[in-house]
């Protein structure tokens, strides 16, 4: 039994998501899971209703005085000059089809949108490739592809690693994970994921992975370097 394993986001995480408290990468992975999971959508709706009622509840919400210097009447006057919308602005529909494991899958919409910046796949270890996305300055976000029969070197995490399975499945000491599963791992876990049938995931890392076994240990400084690079790109771009 391991209580830290979530096939769905925890209520706490869902709540942070609804309140807008998560950074972009985490928000996107929760949103992508919700696109695949009706029960989390229903749960999120309930949590949102709670969030809204505490938002408007004068006894719960701190009554912060906004600065009196601001002239709200002129703010209102300028707002009511602007034109109203008669229909939702038409969003361009982005579809990203990915050919994975002899099949073609459609990415969840929010991931398709994020993947528009272009995916640059890199082989990281035998059978494993990753394509990084730059989404915020707090996390490292990437698509991970595991070829059938591949194994990731044993590693722990400095921060937490959140993984969403998009296609296929992977397994580790704690279980097997299938499409739409949402898995959170933190520092305590030493694990060695492998994939018998092959797998496409999207993952968000709070900090770089730390490899703990054999030759892969030498990759640690490099790993840390690529993480820092991802962060600094996010800040300067």
């Amino acid at each position: 039994m391991n209580t830290d394993v979530n096939m769905h986001p925890s209520s706490q995480l869902l709540n942070q998501f609804i309140q807008g408290e998560l950074a972009t990468g985490k928000s996107i992975i929760v949103s992508a899971h919700m696109e695949l999971c009706k029960s989390c959508c229903a749960k999120a709706k309930e949590l949102e209703a709670l969030a809204v009622s505490s938002w408007v509840d004068p006894s719960i919400a701190p009554q912060l005085e906004s600065p009196s210097a601001t002239d709200y009447s002129s703010m209102v006057a300028s707002i009511v000059q602007s034109a109203q919308l008669s229909s939702e602005p038409v969003e361009e529909v982005v579809e990203v089809q990915m050919d994975v494991l002899d099949d073609s899958i459609k990415l969840p919409k929010v991931l398709a949108k994020a993947a528009q910046q272009g995916l640059n796949w890199k082989q990281v270890a035998g059978g494993i490739s990753e394509a990084q996305l730059i989404l915020d300055d707090e996390t490292q976000c990437e698509f991970i592809y595991m070829a059938p029969g591949s194994k990731v070197p044993v590693h722990t995490h400095k921060g937490s690693e959140t993984t969403l399975v998009l296609k296929g499945s992977f397994e580790d000491e704690l279980g097997e994970y299938k499409a739409s599963d949402f898995i959170v791992r933190d520092t305590q876990h030493h694990h060695q994921p492998g994939s018998k049938e092959g797998c496409l995931c999207f993952a968000v890392l709070d900090s770089p992975l730390k490899f703990t076994q054999g030759l892969a240990r030498f990759m640690n400084p490099v790993n840390s370097y690529t993480f820092k690079k991802a962060i600094s790109k996010a800040v300067t771009s």
């Binding site: 996107i28 919409k109 929010v110 949108k113 989404l135 996010a234 800040v235």
Partner: peptide
């Protein structure tokens, strides 16, 4: 996001459609 100058490929309306 705009203030932190993060890439604008994804907006709030994509995340909470």
């Amino acid at each position: 996001r705009k203030q932190k100058r993060q890439p604008n490929c994804v907006s709030a309306d994509d995340i909470w459609p």
